[in-house]
Amino acid sequence: MSARAQTYLWFAQRLSGAVLALCVAVHLATIILAVQGGLSAAEILGRTRGSTAWAAFYAAFVLAVAVHAPIGLRAILREWTLWRGRGLDAAVALVGVGLALLGWRAVGAVVG
């Protein structure tokens, strides 16, 4: 991988990490506020169903996870195993695609 590509990889992880910090804070605050009146599936769906704002928020959350996690996983695998090269890069990219697809599917289920 070129020096430029690796630099962008680092930047993508930094940027997605910053987005995640915000998303996790909002997500946790929402959970704490939401359980005040009792937690139920109906209550959650009542808040999210048809909401463009929550759809956009969680879609961005999923995207940040799908970018952040594979890059971190790649670094961990490089440090703790002997796995290197294109096979590793392809495998973690696949993890990212999987996280995005599963995450967006879940978002679709609660806002649709």
Partner: peptide
């Protein structure tokens, strides 16, 4: 030099 210090063996690790 920046290319030499980039990436998996360099500053980004």
């Amino acid at each position: 030099r920046l290319a030499a210090v980039s990436g998996d063996a360099g500053c980004h690790s």
